[in-house]
Design a protein around this nucleic acid. Structure first.
Length: 437
RNA sequence: GGCCCCAUCGUCUAGCCUGGUCUAGGACGUCAGCUUCUCAAGCUGUAGACACCGGUUCAAAUCCGGUUGGGGCUACCA
């Protein structure tokens, strides 16, 4: 039985910038294709531009990929392979398929043959090019470093890449590369050009039009699973009207050939919605761990040290109404210490009139509760409003502001239970003191 | 300019390859309602698209051609 050669794909970022949305999606498709076919996912750093490549960008790219869960099986650096490219270029020189630049600069240039080249793209089908329209291509630059198209071909061939999955902005690079493959007598890989991601307005994605760096999304409080989920939906669909899909599930059914041809506009609202779905449905302990590492990364740890039990309580209460980790982080602040920062507008709206009598009675009733449960606080609250002859609404909103500092939040009594008796009474004392002034 | 890619609701898409089941399905967003101690969530419902023209065919979102529109490439950047 003939063993079909294993699928090998690669993602080849250049460390001349951070990893952006488009690159991440390209990487994701490669990764999914490799995992779906039990193949190998190669990460190749295209750092031939010594001036513009930096260690910082490299680290940022690697960190972003790890965060997204896109692990690689092999890692290569083009900067370590310059001699290989020169060897191949010399071969072309010897065979008369390339020539030395006439200006004596030392650059090696490929003679462009006059022919028609065909790409059989997995997504676009056959695409034809007339190479007569393409000028001779520089292979090795004056500084003896390889050009992108040359290094790319040599590496893809040497690394036995079977499928090249990349953005369709590379379609016009493909004939130039094919000519190099043919000049060297190398086996052609399969090509799959996936569409680009457009900005919110439909134009080119840019920093100006919105965030583009993966790290920025992380800082905005997105869960990596949610971002990956959203990204894979840009240009691919699992079918069955499914919107929420994990990396694991998608890596079982993904196929590049099913990818769309049309560019997709980035839409923050949908990303936000997917993120909220993950926050609502994720395993609570896992969510807590995510929040913890988010707080640590942001160095704005609301809790110090981290109180897991409390975090779990808060998460349970707030995850339903949270969209990002930032929302959760904010919620956590309400539970930090007895002190509370009260929103000024909220204070104006609900605590500007003197409610010292009402809060006084409420405090007394709360004090008498032995087990500070939602049910018990609700009963105590009820008897308070009855005694004061006011409606629930007249006191519940001020109370919410008093104990949580804001007008919005979870159900009043679940909130009180989570806060606990001690903290609740302390905060009531605090507003009581305010009324006396 | 030349070459190339693309074209279904505002957005992401299903359907297109293998024409009829499409009076075009789903999701986000919008709007309305339910629920309600706030804000959400949730549930129900509403409006909303096959870019245009022509051809092939008994029949086209689906096939073909053109137009228009958008995008990419055209570097000794990647």
């Amino acid at each position: 039985m003939v063993q079909e050669s294993k699928i090998r794909v690669r993602f080849a970022p250049s460390p001349t910038g951070y990893l952006h949305i488009g690159g991440a999606r390209t990487c994701l498709f490669n990764w999914l294709y490799a995992r779906a076919n039990k193949g190998t996912f190669v990460l190749r750093i295209e750092d031939t531009d010594k001036v513009r490549s930096t260690k910082e960008y490299l680290d940022e790219i690697l960190d972003s990929l790890k965060w997204l869960g896109l692990n690689w099986d092999e890692l290569h650096f083009q900067s370590e392979r310059f001699e290989i490219y020169r060897t191949y270029a010399r071969k072309l020189l010897d065979e008369g398929k390339a020539y030395l630049a006439e200006d004596g600069s030392g650059a090696i240039i490929l003679k462009m043959p006059q022919k028609t080249v065909e790409i059989n793209d997995l997504i676009h089908g056959v695409i034809r090019f007339d190479t007569g329209l393409i000028k001779d291509q520089v292979l090795i630059k004056t500084d003896q470093s390889p050009t992108y198209n040359f290094a790319c071909v040599i590496d893809d061939s040497q690394m036995n890449i079977t499928h090249i999955i990349r953005g369709d902005d590379h379609i016009s690079n493909t004939p130039k590369q094919i000519v190099i493959y043919e000049a060297l007598g190398l086996k052609l890989p399969q090509f799959a050009h996936i569409p680009m991601i457009l900005g919110e307005g439909g134009g080119r994605m840019s920093k100006r039009a919105g965030a583009t760096a993966i790290t920025e999304y992380r800082r905005m409080g997105f869960l990596s699973e949610a971002l990956a989920n959203y990204l894979m939906l840009l240009g691919w669909s699992p079918g069955n009207n499914q919107e929420i899909i994990s990396l694991k599930e998608s890596s079982e059914k993904f196929n590049v050939a099913d990818a769309n041809k049309t560019a997709a506009a980035f839409n923050m609202d949908k990303l936000l919605w997917i993120n909220s779905q993950y926050i609502k449905n994720m395993d609570l302990e896992k969510l807590s761990a995510e929040l913890k590492s988010f707080c640590e990364a942001e160095k704005t740890s609301a809790q110090n040290p981290w109180d897991e039990k409390e975090a779990l309580r808060v998460l349970k209460l707030y995850r339903e109404r949270a969209t990002t980790l930032i929302d959760l982080q904010e919620a956590l602040k309400i539970f930090t210490g007895p002190e509370l920062a009260i929103d000024e507008a909220a204070r104006q709206k609900f605590l500007s009139i003197d409610l010292s009598r009402e809060f006084g009675i409420l405090k007394e009733n709360f004090s008498n509760i032995s087990e500070f449960s939602a049910m018990a606080t609700e009963a105590a609250f009820k008897s308070t409003v009855d005694k004061c002859g006011i409606t629930t609404k007249q006191l519940i909103h001020p109370l919410r502001v008093a104990v949580s500092g804001r007008t919005i939040g979870p159900g009043m009594f679940e909130l009180l239970e989570a806060l606990g008796k001690e903290r609740t009474l302390a905060r009531i004392d605090s507003v009581l003191a305010g009324f006396k002034k």
